[in-house]
């Protein structure tokens, strides 16, 4: 379907010779300066090759690239920018590192920085176990509520983050033992069943009052050492409050039976050394701000 270009009568312009259902296309010439702009762009591109790193080359037995006369490197630029940011932040971070947690809390500027920095650090290091909203999972505590295994004051939280829970490499780690009373042969199956009924009775959910009566003796002899006689727990040993509706592993009779019979020993790593002191303090302030911190605010 070759058509010869011909002059369009109305406009006096040649057509391209292409035709679609009787519609032809005018072949208007481009303005020449447009062509010069194209040449200028090509020129700029070539200057770019010379100025910046560009083509891959084979040199001295290995694959490398033309470095460019400016010596520019994206990696170096990022490193420098990160360094600048770190230098800018270090002013505040050094203050946070050296200040008492409670003083930071009273300083609105440092507090704002700490909460923002803490939120970022939480997402990086804590969210994998505690959840991105710090909502927790079975075996990993919810940090929004007001029940604290190891204490909910700012310094308690910072201590837990620094040294972890049952983290054997750290001598100062939080340590508490909930052994398997059935698996270790300390209690019989029926004794465990009875003590479970006694625990359920704290929240008014016991099904068998005779079992409760039998379990009370076991609880007083063994469990109350950590969980206290009234079952309210002790943050010294990480012993949870058994009277509230918050259960780390589950509050149904079967789960409580499993906890007593086979023990529980959740682990949290010690973060001292992995995170710097300023970050740990920021994290403590952030976690406390989630609404569960037991510190009296500004008093």
């Amino acid at each position: 379907m070759t058509h010869k270009p011909k002059k369009d009568e109305v406009t006096g312009v040649y057509t391209t010779g292409h035709e679609w259902d009787g519609i032809t296309e005018l072949d208007n010439p481009m303005p020449r300066w447009w062509l010069y702009i194209l040449y200028a762009c090509i020129g700029i591109a070539i200057m770019g090759w010379i100025w910046y790193p560009s083509w891959p080359v084979w040199k001295d037995g290995e694959m490398t690239y033309l470095k460019g006369v400016s010596g520019y490197s994206t990696r170096a630029a990022v490193t420098r920018e990160l360094g600048d940011i770190a230098a800018e932040r270090s002013v505040y971070l050094n203050e946070i590192r050296d200040m008492d947690l409670y003083d930071i809390q009273k300083n609105p500027d440092l507090l704002r920085i700490s909460l923002a920095g803490g939120a970022a650090a939480f997402g990086d290091s804590c969210a994998p176990c505690h959840g991105s909203g710090a909502q927790g999972f079975v075996g990993f505590p919810n940090l929004n509520d007001d029940a604290w295994l190891w204490g909910g004051t700012l310094s308690d939280i910072a201590q837990t983050i620094r040294h972890g829970v049952r983290w054997e490499a750290d001598p100062e780690t939080r340590m508490g033992v909930m052994q398997g009373y059935l698996s270790d042969g300390i209690l019989s199956r029926s004794e465990v069943t009875d003590v479970v009924q006694y625990v359920l009775n704290f929240s008014g959910r016991a099904e068998n009052q005779e079992a409760v009566a039998r379990g009370s003796e076991t609880f007083a002899n063994i469990c109350s050492a950590c969980h206290m006689e009234d079952g309210t727990g002790n943050t010294m040993f990480g012993a949870p409050d058994l009277t509230d509706p918050i259960w780390l592993y589950g509050g149904d009779p079967e789960t409580i039976f499993r906890s007593v019979a086979y023990g529980r020993a959740g682990v949290m790593p010690a973060w001292a050394g992995r995170l710097d002191e300023a970050t740990i303090k920021q994290l403590a302030l952030f976690v406390s701000s989630l609404g569960g911190g037991t510190d009296p605010v500004d008093q």
Binding site: G131, G133, Q135, D244, G291
Partner: peptide
């Protein structure tokens, strides 16, 4: 949105 609500030790919802 995350968490939508939090249960507190006295049973209230926050």
């Amino acid at each position: 949105r995350n968490p939508l609500f939090v249960q507190l030790s006295d049973g209230s919802i926050r």
